[in-house]
Amino acid sequence: MSSIALEVKDLVKSFSLDGAMINAVDNVSFQVHAGEFVALVGPSGSGKTTMLSILAALLSPTSGQVLIDGQDLAQMNEKRRVKLRREKIGFTFQSNNLIPFLTAQENVEFMLRLNGQADKAGRVRSAEILARLGLSDRLHNLPAQLSGGQQQRVAIARALIHNPAVVLADEPTASLDTERAFQVVETFAKLVHENNRAGIMVTHDLRMCQYVDRVLQMQDGKLVRAVETKKEIMELAHGAIKH
């Protein structure tokens, strides 16, 4: 078994709503190994986006632990969390992913600049990863000149270019048509596996689960089910396709 890239232990995140405390994430524990691609699914309000925000070091948990590459988020001040986000985490968002005034290649290279790795080798690597994602002829295009699917692929390249321990994706297919959505998630999965990263994708679209290694299902802030065998995962994904 490969090393644990991400470990969540007894995680709780509470919010105050109209004077009452609500547990958006309620005592959740799981691990993700390097080279494993996990889908976090659940209905709206199930707590998956809150979970992702905590994993991305954008939100502090109320209690519990999140260890990324062995480093405990709870022990970090804001400066160290920013450093962790820069070095250990890759992130793609639903939309507005890219810096609009940087070209596709510059967007990818920006992660290297942030990490002080923007050299000639980094430039070659960014061109290679974009070529792998079918964007070799779009290196110098601005985001506005790219389709939604192309923008998502650039975001995936950016999320992986600096070899983070964990790659997080928040509804990466939300703004894509079905065909492009499958393409994007398939490519994402391939790169996570090839680069031996831990990938976590939040999605409400169960059809996308066919490319992941494990599905974690959340409801009311709790982790209610873990689908771990390929057969079960495919049944879940195909069931969604049939519906």
């Binding site: 991305a56 450093k83 820069r86 070095e87 507005n96 950016r158």
Partner: peptide, 8 residues
């Protein structure tokens, strides 16, 4: 986005 990906 800039802050989320690690810009200070």
């Amino acid at each position: 986005v800039l802050k989320a990906i690690g810009s200070s």
